[in-house]
Design a protein around this nucleic acid. Structure first.
Lengths: 283, 283
DNA sequence: TGACTGTTGGAACAAACATTCCATATTGCC
DNA sequence: GGCAATATGGAATGTTTGTTCCAACAGTCA
């Protein structure tokens, strides 16, 4: 027979469980605590962000009551209860990030080095796709596609790590029957290849940190010559951001020193097919 | 005459404005502050929830730098900057939830063509990654990496849709200090480029249905000359399957006429880093 | 080279914070 | 009605937090 240790009950681990718990035993809570529970369910966002003093004031109780409330639900303190609300707000993306961090932490877990690396790159790709799904303004893609659809020729610029993306775009555009030129810098003639572009054309420039100077330079030149430039880049700090007409932002997760390209490719695919659709719609 | 009060500029009131501001003047920020800006844009959720100490550690700066960063953007202190991120998260979480519901509600299509395409490509990529995770033999990757690690030079062969993968491998191997030659077929000299390979080297050949004849031909030639060939392809029915020493199978999902490349890239990344690790272990 | 301006790291600081404690009030029970 | 148990308000407390300050450093122009 086990000794009578007060088996301290586990607090609800997530928001859904918390709500279930309150529904079950919320009725037999003391008046002030019930008041807190009601406020909590009515304003879950306040619970995530505000301080004890603020929440207490809004709920019409003392800060200490909040702590007591949390402890009545078996949390060590109010902060632990609050964490549940914060996690609820950030949803799955934190899941991915935590898993990535864990993977990075273990030197080489079970399954061997290759397994660890593979899982790491897969997680990084998944996280990137997740972010792309949540944060991308599809209207902006449509705008970009419309611009590309009107272009006589689409010039594709990108180097080093991003060259795969533009070479893919060259393939996709070709297959879709859209006239495109891959600025591949063969023979060092990148600038000359791109200089063919005029205001009736368009350019897709792809560059992520650390930005290849030549890509930025070519985009700048084109932009200043009146060529519509669509930038595929990693954010507002990119030097491409100021040298473009339409900025498509992509956030890629990394694993080790290597950044995923999954989101960038998905966006590139979308952009090319959307352009083809626009052309078809116009005709 | 009014006294010379320094008309203190107003800080960005919401996230969109903050991004706009950074786009305009982010480039001329001091290095450390720009580092903060980059971290901030890459991990906006961290900015909403974590404390100065935590954020600073992740961004690789001092807590004081965060305060300085906020003040550089005309906020009185870091807390005021953080408030922008919290507000964004509050609003966006309801946005995101609504969008998800909308997407679930309507079968597909009315949410805009671009959205439909984007979600489709994202889903295809995720499915591919899922499959890769589930059915890849990591021991085989280790074997392949060991083979590559022993090679004098790695020859990279792939064309058309798969050219992005080999061009990425060329980038990765270069960055990792592994001698590699990208067989890019410039000037139609692909066969000659690949003919340099000998038994002391190795070749990675990438081809998926419909297989590019030249890629298959080059791999066959190399294999018969005693060059270790590692094939990255889509299954046992591939013509590459018989002309290689190690067969790495990848199943990619497609959306419309376009197949994802997410799994192939993840595998390529794994293979290159695993090779570098093997080389390091051998030394 | 040498002053000057701007940037950075790290310790010191004061304010804000969640939490604890205790006296008081309320409730339930005999 | 009186006692015990619980609930509550509000001050006290020890952390943790964001912030400030200063010395050291880097870059720039004379």
């Amino acid at each position: 027979m086990p000794p009578e240790i007060a088996a301290l009950p586990a607090p609800p681990g997530d928001y859904a469980e918390l709500v279930r718990r309150l529904r079950a035993e919320g009725a037999r809570l003391p008046p002030r605590l019930r008041q807190v529970a009601e406020h909590m369910l009515a304003h879950p966002e306040d619970m995530a962000f505000q301080t004890t003093a603020e929440i207490a004031a809004r709920a019409g109780v003392q800060p200490s009551t909040l702590v007591r409330f949390a402890q009545a639900l078996d949390y060590p303190g109010f902060s632990d209860l609050q964490q549940v609300f914060r996690n609820r707000l950030r949803r799955e993306s934190s899941d991915h990030r935590a898993r990535l961090a864990a993977l990075r932490g273990e030197a080489s877990g079970e399954g061997g080095m290759a397994r660890t690396l593979l899982e790491g790159f897969i997680r990084a790709s998944q996280a990137s796709l997740e972010t792309l799904s949540g944060r991308t303004d599809s209207a902006l893609i449509e705008t970009a596609a419309a611009r590309l659809a009107r272009a006589g020729t689409v010039y594709l610029v990108g180097a080093r790590r991003m060259f795969p993306v533009v070479s893919y775009l060259a393939y996709a555009f070709g297959k879709l029957g859209i006239r495109a030129v891959l600025v591949d810098n063969v023979g060092g003639l990148g600038a000359e290849q791109a200089a063919m572009a005029g205001p009736g054309d368009a350019m897709i420039a792809v560059s992520f940190a650390p930005y290849t100077p030549q890509t930025v330079e070519i985009a700048r030149e084109a932009h200043r010559s009146g060529v519509p430039v669509i930038a595929l880049t990693d954010g507002a700090l990119s030097p491409l951001a100021v040298e473009c007409d339409i900025l498509l932002e992509v956030v890629e997760a990394d694993f080790g020193a290597f950044r995923s390209m999954a989101a960038t490719f998905a966006l590139a695919m979308t952009l090319s097919v959307a352009t083809a659709e626009k052309i078809r719609a116009d005709a």
